[in-house]
């Protein structure tokens, strides 16, 4: 018989101390980890639950700065009116992720730490230039989300370290959107894209574009952003941006889709996310 230990610390300090022990693994919603355990892909037998850790549980605003605790269930973030207004791409990504039941237990921190290249919230958070707060027994540090992922299933987190919060700055004049495709609605993304733009006097002053499921990690597409910035957000610019996507991604073929198919649809998703973001940004300006 195999035994499983399950501990439920209530403070960050306690969590860091428990989680630092050998073979321990932090678990939040468990919607990825428990599936991996059952299929034998994770042998973790020593789980440290983050669900009762107070410091990880809140959604806090300071002016336009948002701090989302790592263990907040996605359903809670998706239901937040101000997040839906200021970070619509994140709300759209959460709405596309799993089922109601999954969103009731899965957390934003868990979605990022699982580090799936297809993580639905990652492209949206990349477009918002989210920063990640990391704690260890020595203190906290902050990294940009674009530096957080190091490969499929791996991040910059060191053993015993904990992702404590996701930090976001709202850009009130921006428009943003998220698009994704699966084989059916409830599926891992076969490709996803998020875009954020600011438009002034029919000129794109700021652009952020990110994609998912088409590279070893969720990916910012800086070259596409450069094509957009300083240009009129019109058909020819969008066509150029769409055409630039292919060279930036490195999709694989798997059971969900072929690399060739991902190469065909990703530029389309990027263009559609941009169109939706532009329409929102220009709508706001009027």
């Amino acid at each position: 018989m195999t035994t499983l230990t399950y501990q439920r610390p209530t403070s960050l300090r306690e969590a860091l101390e428990t989680g630092g022990s050998d073979g321990a693994r932090f678990v939040s919603g468990g919607t990825d980890l428990m599936v991996q355990r059952r299929s034998g892909r994770s042998g973790t037998e020593n789980l440290v639950s983050l669900r009762r850790v107070e410091e990880l549980a809140g959604i806090d605003w300071k002016n336009d700065q948002l701090r989302i605790g790592a263990a907040v269930p996605l359903a809670g973030i998706g239901a937040d009116q101000r997040i839906a207004r200021d970070f619509p791409a994140l709300a759209q990504a959460i709405a596309a992720l799993g089922s109601v039941q999954i969103r009731n237990v899965a957390t934003l921190g868990g979605n990022l730490c699982n580090a799936s290249p297809a993580a639905d919230t990652a492209p949206a958070l990349l477009a918002y230039e989210a920063r990640i707060e990391i704690a260890n027994t020595g203190g906290t540090r902050t990294v940009g989300l674009d530096e957080f992922f190091t490969g499929p299933g791996s991040t910059v987190l060191q053993p015993g370290e904990l992702l404590t919060a996701i930090l976001l700055d709202a850009r009130q004049s921006a428009g943003s959107a998220f698009m994704r495709l699966g084989r059916v609605r409830m599926d891992l993304a076969i490709a996803s894209a998020a875009a954020l733009v600011e438009i002034e006097d029919n000129r794109c002053t700021h652009a952020r574009v990110a994609v998912g499921a088409v590279a070893p990690t969720p990916l910012r597409l800086s070259a596409v952003e450069e094509i957009l910035e300083g240009k009129a957000p019109d058909g020819p610019t969008l066509a150029k941006a769409q055409a630039a996507v292919d060279a930036l991604i490195s999709p694989i073929s798997d059971l969900r889709a072929s690399a060739r198919h991902r190469r065909r649809i990703t530029p389309v998703l990027v263009a559609r996310a941009l169109e939706a973001a532009i329409s929102m940004a220009t709508g706001d300006a009027q």
């Binding site: 059916v184 409830m186 059971l255 969900r256």
Partner: peptide
């Protein structure tokens, strides 16, 4: 949507993660 995929006689998608049924959506 549906297809059991095999390779060399082995089922590659033995579960609803990669065998897709239509749902209410």
């Amino acid at each position: 949507y549906e297809e059991v995929k095999t390779e060399g006689g082995r089922v590659l998608n033995p579960g609803f993660t990669d065998y897709k049924l239509p749902t209410a959506s």
